[in-house]
Structure formats: structure tokens, C-alpha cells
Design a protein around this nucleic acid. Structure first.
Lengths: 352, 352
DNA sequence: ACTAGATTTGACATCGTTGTCAATCAGGCG
DNA sequence: CGCCTGATTGACAACGATGTCAAATCTAGT
């Protein structure tokens, strides 16, 4: 009676290799050979094993095998991004997944919301699951805590943001260069009073973009005092409010550089609300969907998240394949996409 | 000499519980107790073990433990969506991740691109990794192949699309209802010649939306012959071309219902290209970013992907907690968001 | 001082698989 | 017919952890 209790819910536990072996009337090691496509099994035996496996709906337990296997690979990768909900992260994720899928590798994804504690927890959770490698958009200021993992041989590649405190591979956008390009574009159209709307100062890319912004102004000999620099915006709402305050202030900017995709959207809202979208220039960092259909279209410095993700994943696999060259830093360029909002002239129509 | 070869690259393998036990001078089972917070260990012993674990940078191997543990839980979930790159999927993913993270569960995500073969492979890949449950937006016409997994006790929950061939939980949007609502909205504004632009006919939700569209026309006694029904569009490009053909044709529609987010974007492009965006009404299914900033704003039937994801994840966890009630079907309502494009009257200005 | 009872601890089998190695088998050759 | 060779097969240990259970230690009551 009680021996049947496993069937109570009409369910029996998943079949093991031992049960397949028993049904096929062979040894367990022979099943292992068939499942793993090892040589030296007769076609008849192979067939018997496959039939038994099918009959029992056998699925090998990758982790049990991995425990004993020599290479100790789980064929699993851990990806840490800002949020799987953000289009930029989504594109990175997709590229990583595609590169991984080609190699039969599954991807764990986790959203950090730029929270250092979440990063530490997510990394630990992935390591306990023995991922073969980590790809991360860091949220912490210092990643020294990853040092031991690197020594244990787990490859770590940074995407979008550079590592600090450890020596490891990184794939990043040309943040300072892209930001400078945006500013130069606005300067070329005659603007002198350009506002900077940026993400949390704790984020490395945000600081880089700010640096690019200020450097470009400096090179053009535009006093930075003219430029309202607003930082620590972290979503559409705060960005919108910040720009509304500027627009309602005594000396509003004639142009705006919004340094992140959600900030750009917040800025667009603020401009529309004040009806200033046709006379205030705007260049955003990172492209946004439908930007081309707005009136005016939104000029942006586009990043190439697919490239970032693809290159990062390739780097991980090269490391896993034994590449032990010194750590590399790959910079992916940005592209200025002219659509209208960045070409609006300042009120006076000043020209070079 | 050779005994040191493990350090060749300056790396030593990851520490095991045995090594922690040795360093702490205790038995391996005592380390297990400390790591898992089991009772009956003196504070001094606990401290010695924790010190040793820290010194060796010990991370328990979740999968090794799981092999022996009674509950056999990997604390891992598999999520299969259209593409992690699509905003709708991203929102579902984020909601699932949040619900999972609360419970210390990690999430594997995989993109299917509506390819049935990819679905089968991804499911197998997840099962071999012994995920505790599967949440999927199916790409196959029939999911009978999942029947054995259900019997083995792996909970499966469908999101966005309904299962076929198996009895299991599903969380879906009110596709037919939402589509009908869109059509009724356009009818109320006087339109009679409404085009339907839909996704692949093989996709269940696409068929549901088409059904809702046709039903609403039927109820209004509008002959379906008037309505150009175009299906099997699967990206922005094909949707754009299809609508361009309609607009350039002999008797163009006065209103358009685009039944998916990428199709809506393609339709928007087509309308702009022909300069018809101010006189052709448009209602899209599924909201798109920046839809409110276009001119006119894009009226949509918004889905609630966060709710779909959250409810699906909760369902999985209820099943894992032992809920064995008959499978449920949860329908999440849609919301009509009026923004302008859906309220454009037909040329004649006919009114009810 | 001695023992019952509770607390703390560790030896050992075990989970599902793969690596090692020896046993068996078929066929060919002297 | 016996022996060698190479192909085929399976017994067994091991991977890193946990469950079981008994041994060791402590506490308190007589």
C-alpha cells in the first residue's frame, strides 16, 4: 500500500540512468556511453538503450554528471544587467543568449537596478550554481570582492561599465567620446547654454559621459558655468521634473543633452509639457524606440548593445577555451543619428 | 613538481566543504550544519567554521547538495519568451524575476522567436538542468510533449498563450476582448472600413485577436468583406510593407487595427511615409514606448505584462508548495488608452 | 560519584552521473 | 585448438553535498 504512495498524485519521480539500464538490460555505464555519444557500443545495444530512455522519458541530470566530469562545466552563464526590462539591457541580453545558445550554454539573467547589494547577492547566487562565467554591468564602485573568483578560474567580463579593483576583460561604449560628439553637434548648431541631464553619479558610465560633456565645452572655450549640470536622475520622472525646473527657471538652456535612455524620455515629456520641443534642441545618449517618428525626430548618440553583448560573450568563451592573455578592454564606438531635435538652432540663430 | 601544477595559472580549484572542515578542525557534517543554519552547533564551533569558510572563499555547491537533499529543489526556474529583446517579454521577465528573487530562486531565460524547434530544445535544456518549474510563451501548436514532465511533477505555467494538448495553468490577456474593444472604439468614431494587421496565424493569440476583430465587426453588422485582413506579419518591416500596399491600393482603409507591438510600429512608419497619420485612424494592441509623445498620440489596447509575469510566477510557487487543485486559467484584462490616433474620424465624418 | 537525558559531533551511506579499469567476447592466426 | 588482439561491456570508486544514526560530551539530579 504505502509502497504505492509515490503514485498518489499520479506522478512518479523522474527516471534515472540506473532505471534505463535496468529496462534495457544493460549496465549503467553503457547507458552513459549511449547518452553521451561515446564510441564502442553496438548499434543493437544503442537502440535498446534509446528505446528504454524514450519509454521512461529519461532526461540526463546535467548537474549530477558535472559533479564527476573532468571539465567541470555546467554550460551555464550568469548575466547581470541594469534591468531585463530596459531595452538596452534587453539587447545586450539577446546577443549574449544567441552566442551562448550556439554553444549549448544556458543563461541566467538578473536585474540589479544599480543596487550594489543586489549585485553581491546575485553574484553569490550564480557562483553557488557554478556558472562557467559571469558577464556583468556592475552596480558596485569596487569589484575587489570578485578577485577570489577570478583566481578560482571563473572568467568575468564586464559589459557597459569598466571594472575597478580587479584586472579583467571589459567591453564598453565610448561614453566620453559619444557625449563629446553630442555636445560638439549642439555647439556646431550655435548653442552655448547646454544643459546636462545625467544618471546617478555613482555609475561609472554616467561620470564618463559627464566628463565627455565638460571636456567638449572646455575645448570650445564655453565656460562651464553656462551649463546647468544636473546629475543623480534615475528614471523618467526625476528627469522630467529636473528639466521642468530648468525650463521654468530664469535662464533656461537652449539645448539639452540627456545622458541615458530613460532620461531622454523624461526630457521629451518635459519639453512637450511646456511646448518647448520645437525650439529647444535635444540630443540623447542611447537610442530609443520610435525616436524617428516624433516631431521633431530625436537626435541621439546610438550605442550598439548587440555588439557589446556579443563581444562580451565571445570573450567569456575564449577565456573558457584557455585564452590566458592579459585582460582586454574593448571600446565599441557610438553613432550620431541625426533626426531633427539636435539641429534646432538657438533663439538668436547665432551661427559659426 | 607536478603536484603544484594546479597552481600553474596562479589558480587553485574552488574549495569544498571537506577542506573547510579540515581547516576548521571539525567534521564535514558540522560544516554542513553551519552553512545551512541548522541548530545544535555551539557558537564557538560556528565561528571557527565561518572563519575557515571565509579564508577559503568557500561557496557551497548548490547542485551537489541538491543531489542528496530530500526536496530535490534547484531553486531555479526556466522562462521561455518570444524574445528577451521585446519590451513585452522584458516586462514579463522582470515580473517573474522579482517574484523568484524573493524566494531565492534564479531564472533561466530563453528567446524562442516563435520557433517550435527552439522551444523543444530550450525545454529539454532546462529539464536537464532540473529547473523546478517552467513558465512559457509557447511557440508550438501542440504541447502534448510536455505531458510526461507534468507527470514527473514539474509544474508548467503558460503565459500569454494558452496550452493545447495538456491540462495546465495559464495566465493570458483578454486578447479577443481587447481586440473587440479596439474595433468598437473605431466603429464608434464612424469607421466602417477597418484594416486588420496581424501576426503569424500559427500564433494562438494572433488568432484570438483576429477573432475578436471579426466578432466585433459582425456584431455591428459591418460586412467583413469591407475589412482587409492581413495576417502572417512578423516584424516591423513586413507590417510596414503590408500597410503601404493597402494605402496605395484602390480603396484604402479609413482605420487600422495593428494587433501586436512591432506591427504597430511598422504601421506608424507606413502612415508617416504616406503622410496619412493625421487622417487614418490607428489603434494598436499592446502599448509601445513614447506612444504618448507622437502626434497624434497612439491609441492602444494596453496589456499588463507585469501582471501576467507575476501571476504566472506565483502560480508556479503555489504548485511547488503542493497546491494540486485543477489547472486554472487566469485572464488579465486589457486597458484602452485613448491618445488621439484612434479618435481620428473617417473622411466623410460620419457619426452615430 | 553515578546516571538519565539532552546536546553536540562526526562516520558513513547515498544522490545520479562519469572515469578507470578489468572482464568478457568475437574473430583471426599460427 | 589455443592464443592474441581489439571491441564491447559493466563493477566500482568518486564528485560535493546531506540524511541517518550512533558516539561523545555535557548538565543536572540523586
Amino acid at each position: 500500500m504505502t509502497s504505492l504512495s509515490a503514485r498518489d498524485a499520479g506522478s512518479r519521480p523522474r527516471a534515472t540512468m540506473r532505471q534505463v539500464a535496468e529496462l534495457a538490460g544493460v549496465g549503467i555505464k553503457t547507458v552513459s556511453r549511449v547518452i553521451n555519444g561515446e564510441p564502442n557500443v553496438t548499434p543493437q545495444t544503442t537502440q535498446r538503450v534509446l528505446d528504454a530512455a524514450r519509454a521512461l522519458d529519461y532526461q540526463p541530470d546535467l548537474h549530477a554528471g558535472n559533479l564527476r566530469r573532468a571539465d567541470r562545466r555546467t554550460r551555464t552563464l550568469g548575466l547581470l544587467v541594469g534591468s531585463v526590462d530596459n531595452p538596452f539591457s534587453g539587447a545586450v541580453h539577446r546577443a549574449v543568449e544567441d552566442a551562448a545558445a550556439e554553444r549549448g550554454v544556458a543563461v541566467f539573467a538578473s536585474s540589479l537596478d544599480d543596487d550594489p547589494q543586489r549585485e553581491r547577492e546575485a553574484v553569490a547566487a550564480f557562483l553557488r550554481r557554478r556558472v562557467d562565467g559571469l558577464i556583468l554591468t556592475t552596480a558596485t564602485a569596487d569589484q575587489t570582492y570578485l578577485e577570489p573568483e577570478l583566481r578560482h578560474g571563473t572568467p568575468v567580463v564586464f559589459v557597459d561599465r569598466e571594472p575597478s579593483g580587479i584586472e579583467t576583460d571589459a567591453v564598453v561604449s565610448d561614453n566620453a567620446g559619444g557625449a563629446a560628439r553630442a555636445v560638439e553637434h549642439l555647439l556646431a548648431h550655435g548653442h552655448r547654454r547646454i544643459a546636462y541631464l545625467g544618471d546617478l553619479h555613482s555609475i561609472q558610465t554616467a561620470r564618463e559621459r559627464r566628463r565627455g560633456f565638460l571636456d567638449a565645452l572646455d575645448r570650445a572655450a564655453v565656460p562651464a558655468d553656462d551649463a546647468p549640470v544636473i546629475e543623480d536622475l534615475h528614471d523618467q520622472g526625476t528627469a522630467r521634473e529636473a528639466l521642468l525646473r530648468l525650463l521654468d527657471g530664469p535662464n533656461p538652456p537652449t539645448a539639452v543633452f540627456s545622458a541615458q535612455n530613460l532620461i531622454t524620455i523624461g526630457a521629451l515629456h518635459a519639453l512637450r509639457e511646456r511646448g518647448r520641443h520645437r525650439d529647444t534642441a535635444l540630443v540623447g545618449f542611447d537610442d530609443v524606440e520610435l525616436a524617428d517618428l516624433l516631431e521633431p525626430g530625436v537626435t541621439v548618440i546610438a550605442q550598439h548593445p548587440e555588439d557589446l553583448g556579443r563581444i562580451a560573450a565571445e570573450r567569456i568563451f575564449e577565456r573558457l577555451d584557455g585564452d590566458d592573455a592579459p585582460s582586454q578592454r574593448v571600446v565599441v564606438g557610438t553613432t550620431l543619428i541625426v533626426r531633427g531635435s539636435g539641429e534646432i538652432p538657438p533663439p538668436g540663430g547665432r551661427r559659426t
